[in-house]
Amino acid sequence: MAVACPIDLDTRKLRDEIRSIYARVASDPAGEFHFHRGPNYAAEFLRYDRAALAQLPAESTAAFAGVANPHRIAPIEEGSTVVDIGCGAGMDLLLAAKSAGPRGRAIGIDMTESMAEKARASARAAGLDNVEVRLGDAMSLPLEDSSADVVISNGVLNLTSDKSVAFGEVFRVLKPGGRFLYADIVVANELSESIRKDVDLWTG
């Protein structure tokens, strides 16, 4: 994974393209995309618990576009404050809220308004009042220092233009001893300069 953008990659264009693609996923999750979506993909490819997904509002699972499964990394204890960076329509966020329980909190962060609104609506539909969703960016999280017991993220930080800034933000908001359950994609082979400058591939 590249640490930062190539110097001449248009980072504003990258952010706009990411917003545009994920707004389209929110409005038309069954549309044409070059990545999988939905609960069947989550269960079959990423080993999510199919029964747990079936208990969530379909709105939250249909637009799921994660790439791995943070819930298999380590358990989320009851009473935890959990932050989901790039919560999308809220599938991972709602699973985290259920694990944290009524004494805990689950705070979702997303930079796409339509996704954030879907996550809020899904939390209401699921009767989860320990969920809060904030508009924000992984490179500048709208959270206090040392405020989270657990941070999860699924397929989001690879989209940021500077991973060292994004990881620094995760570190800042975690309490000492806090855990980062990080799901993302990695690249085993060195990418050519032309590939690294391709916004279409960054947004995949």
């Binding site: 990423l46 499964n69 380590a74 001893g177 855990r179 990080y182 799901a183």
Partner: peptide, 13 residues
């Protein structure tokens, strides 16, 4: 390019 999804654990000391 060997692109895969991964689960990674990390802890803040």
């Amino acid at each position: 390019y060997g692109v895969t999804g991964v689960n990674v654990f990390a802890r803040k000391a």
